[in-house]
Design a protein around this nucleic acid. Sequence first.
RNA 1: GGUCCCUUCGUCUAGAGGCCCAGGACACCACCCUCUCAAGGUGGAGACACGGGUUCGAAUCCCGUAGGGACCA
Length: 471
Amino acid sequence: MRVRFAPAPTGYLHVGGARTALYNWLFARHHGGVFILRIEDTDRERSTDESVQGIQYVLRWLDLDWDEGPAVGGPYGPYRQTERLDLYRRITEELAGRNSAYPCYCTPAELEQRRKQAMARGEPPGYDGRCRNLSDDERRAFEAEGRPKAWRFAAPGRDITVPDLVHGEATFPASDIKDFVILRSDGTPTYLLAAAVDDWKMEVTHVLRGEDLHSSTPRQVLIMEALGVERVPQYAHLPLLLGPDRAPLSKRHGSVSVEWFREQGFLPEALVNYLALLGWSYDDHTELFTRDQLVEYFDLARVARNPAVFDPEKLEWMNGHYIREAVDEPLAERIHEVLGRAGVDSDLETVRLAVPVVKERMKTLSEAVGLLRFLFQEVEPDEKARALIEKAGPKHFRLAAERLSALSEWTSEEIHQALDGLAEELGLSRTKAWQPVRAVVTGSTVSPPLPESIALLGRERTVARLEAAAA
RNA sequence: GGUCCCUUCGUCUAGAGGCCCAGGACACCACCCUCUCAAGGUGGAGACACGGGUUCGAAUCCCGUAGGGACCA
């Protein structure tokens, strides 16, 4: 079994593409097949080394390893290979020899005009087959004129049924399959030809791709059949991913690239788990899966047929879960990195100690910045904090400073006791006594547990902040 | 316009004729826990697009209608 994942060379992978990659990978791994990475390269404008790098980077981050590739399909970009162009041309000639392809001399303007006429007559648009039965004389005349020619596939005029591993069979009527272009006048193949030929040459047995390619399947199958390909791949079309507005996920939804999620502090495990569940389910209640379980359980028969809306909130919840589950040490390193990128100059040692108290209060790693900033920078109390500080008054903080500086041991237990003593002395509830202290020490009314926060901050800085507030 | 695909709580979904006056999860609400925020616990509200059939019985099968999407150019 040879499974191929073929993203377009857009330079990044959006979550829809990532899900397709994941399903291909899971399918291949589940069946012990070969997972092939092939970059679809039919777009002249965007194909660059960088885009291939970008896709590889993302797949590595998600830990989706491939066995072959990256192979590049299509003829463009830095991967432009004239021998490939020759291959597509030779195959087109071969098809022509079998009466399955013919040159078309119609100009874009002519095609456009006829399309409009057809529409006006209430007929479906699409090529009318005009050049299919050109006489030799007519053909010579066009050639003499120096007209550019494209090559079209000669549709066989019969219905075609293509099986699909998630949808079952779909029959496309002959009338819907017009003679389509396979080789452009500049000698480059269209997606249809390139995909069919490359899948054939790479001996691909399974193609899992987006639903948007569903209706192009019969044309690819037709090309392969005309070529006498013995084993046409099996197709599975995955339901599209939608944005919150129910429109297919695309660049205009903004932050949908996997790279963005990485930068925001999402864990690959969370993204993989979430994506796996967008269009597939195992049973009626299991939601959290390890990678091994995913590989073991994944089954195309349980892939949904309806499109799914991408829900960032559920992803966040799941990410929070994976952060809580994460091992402290590597997590500390990642948080250290995130802090650095946010311009907070932290030291790894302190972050290590802080991890246990922050890990269960984050949905994304980037939230660590707000939670831990007070440990590494001077604080500027926010509005709520300032109000609390003002209300409590200097005496509150002077007493707190005294009690804390008198401590013989600087541990969260001792600090806890000192703060309780403060509450007692002031005749206040714990909440009322502690919140102003929190405001002064962390600059916020929200923080990790106070005694732990103070322990992390250190005696000197804590007392200094309290004394400044008492002045 | 044609063809193909799709339609269960706001969202992701379970459901392949009786187990379903529809189950789980996220989000939401309430309560508990509690030094704040979380996490955790308990409870709550919330859906079978519509209309016809078939059947003793339909979310599940059939036919229509409506809506959405993709492709064709």
